[in-house]
Design a protein around this nucleic acid. Structure first.
Lengths: 220, 220, 220, 220
DNA sequence: AATGAATGAGCATTCATTCAT
DNA sequence: TATGAATGAATGCTCATTCAT
């Protein structure tokens, strides 16, 4: 996670050596059962407390079968995140199709709404993802890459607006993009972590307003 | 804490049988040696990988002596961050003495500079603190409380400025305070986590500029 | 990012399904090997001194395998005495089949002979059982229940004889049953504890004579 | 405990090498404070769970001071038992002064009443004594010796009555003495262990009746 | 492929006993 | 003597990973 407003993608990342997709339908079913179970168990117990036994049990497969498909807890978690990123991207794509429509503020608002919605819909694993990123180098790397892609996109957008004179030159695009994406993802995290009583629509509106103001973009 | 500079210790928690302050000077030295060692080991190995053995070794005391002063890894970590919070508060207080001097922007800049400085000076444990907060309920609670204190302070400040007509009424003080403190602490975290090449002064200036703009406060 | 809650909570979790009866023959063999080893080790070293390591070693399984079948020393001991009780009951039942044969004295003699024989045959664990009962609530409970079953049976028998006028009414059946079973079990314990030189047949005869006399039942 | 009807003594036993009685009054006070504390702690926590720390704390002396007076948990327990046996003997002596008064039954009743009273008055440690005897060779030895002294006394008494023709020759004095003292001590143990609702007077009366009947001695 | 048993490294923790002041 | 800190041997227990059917 950690993506942030106006982003969510991933995939591009070189996939580390993983076990091949199972040849048989039965194998594919088992693998998927494990992934589904992992999502449940990680969300429920957190990364550290989740045990491979629990995931196997939840999936209804034998303990030892886990290793037919994944070689460690870290690996299944990475697979899970990849699956998750696909979901996030798909749900984001629909809306982002018309990402160039409307005013700058409208685009920001749309992106933030999408992001908060996706984060909240998947809050169970999103929160665990944050945890896992502090524990596993590869997870941190994935998270970092996603972040950087989001930042890069926003850097380009800010620079474009600066060229057009819509954003002050005193603002450093990279610092700003890093800070603003961090603002949104951190807000989403805190919101979901303890279920603070923020409302999605209002949060999206307020964050977008702060974001636009920060860059000198007109708001309603 | 961690949110931002300042903060107030916690301690509320009643320390169990474990004597908070050893009776003899020798005991006080041992306890402090363990705390100092913990700081080193946690910063070096992270919360999860740090072993009580390592801390004892680093402190130069017998393995079992650890338990004379602390009853678990979690407990020494909590003691460590209480100590840390005191340090942070002290170093923050000094500078914030004249917190009402100068323009609103100047005050924001000063606070952010203080915060980034303190965070960076203690980056080893600050990063581990973030990790530990994902693993231990009490640590998370401490961190959360510090956050809330910072947010509360800024909420008051924003409301005050709104009353004075310096910040638009369209902004919700609580959402804004949460988002902006999150922006800064998240920036600090990312900066220190991987030692990205941000410069402190520039970062403080840019974050303050975004912060001020977001609230409609004039910037240089 | 980084907040989070979740975390620490844990443990609550559960007992990794300790299966009473392993699914495979191999598992059943291992479990039984551990029980057999426990019998040897407990008898040799006593409850307190017996280490799980010793039991595993004696059983020829890996240290960790112990925990596949039992979760503590207490638990395997309980399983062991349940097994033991079955044995005792079976061996007792055989002889007690004709428990109504012969004179009252003859029946008493037979029961005491059976009891002393079984106790002596299993003296190793019987003595440890007494020890364990002073250390573990559940063991004490099991032991107590077995006692009570025996007492209850004898209470009925005494009351029956009182109705028939064969035992004086001045005797309280419950006090008497408690005292007399205690007399026999205590005798057996002392006998086996230090291998005092009592002879089984003579002991059974003397105890039965005292028992019968105590109740006013004629003896040869 | 373990004494039994008509007995309670001890003392005679050769005292194993113990630390000398403290020279100073202060030392004597500390030693006694530890013994008193030990009685409380052992009764409360049992032999196994009692920690030297707890005894020191309860006594109000420093942890390390324990070793000035006793060299181990076993040793202080033995000292405690010796003290206890003195108490028991003293309280028994008063009544036993006229031990030859009255009928044989009256003497038996008086002895059993004394025994049950003393046992119940000290039930806390008596029960722990039984436990400790299963754990420590020396404690077991003390217990055994006391038992044997009681048994020996009763053997003489029975033989005397047999000579006088008051007890049948078919009874073996040693077996009988062992069995009957065991009956009483075991009854006392069970009574105190779980606080079963036996009444002292009735218990003494019933046990004495069984005892007398068993030996062919006339009862009221 | 599936199963479930086997393995053992890895760490925490307790507490009796010794020591320095 | 009194204190309270220091020591470290002794074990229990978990769980990821490997193996034999």
């Amino acid at each position: 996670m950690t993506e942030t407003a106006e982003s969510a993608a991933t995939d591009a990342a070189a996939t580390p050596a993983r076990r091949a997709v199972p040849a048989t339908a039965r194998g594919r079913r088992s693998r998927q059962a494990l992934l589904d179970a992992a999502r449940v168990v990680f969300a429920r117990d957190g990364f550290t407390n989740a045990r491979i036994t629990d995931i196997s049990d939840e999936a209804g497969v034998a303990h030892g079968s886990f290793y037919t498909y994944f070689k460690s807890k870290d690996e299944i978690f990475l697979a899970l995140i990849e699956e998750l990123e696909e979901d996030l991207r798909v749900s984001g794509d629909g809306e982002r199709a018309g990402a160039t429509d409307g005013s700058a503020y409208a685009r920001i608002l749309r992106a933030n709404t999408d992001y908060l919605t996706a984060y909240h819909d998947n809050r169970g694993i999103m929160v665990v993802w944050e945890q896992a990123a502090t524990l596993n180098e590869e997870v941190a790397e994935l998270r970092s890459q996603a972040s950087e892609r989001a930042v890069a996109r926003i850097v380009r957008s800010i620079e474009h607006m600066q060229t057009a004179g819509d954003v002050p030159a005193a603002i450093d695009a990279r610092y700003a993009a890093t800070a603003l994406t961090g603002m949104v993802s951190n807000f989403a995290y805190r919101w979901c972590l303890r279920d603070e009583d923020f409302e999605l629509d209002k949060a999206a509106e307020q964050l977008s307003r702060l974001w636009a103001n920060a860059l000198g973009i007109p708001t309603p």
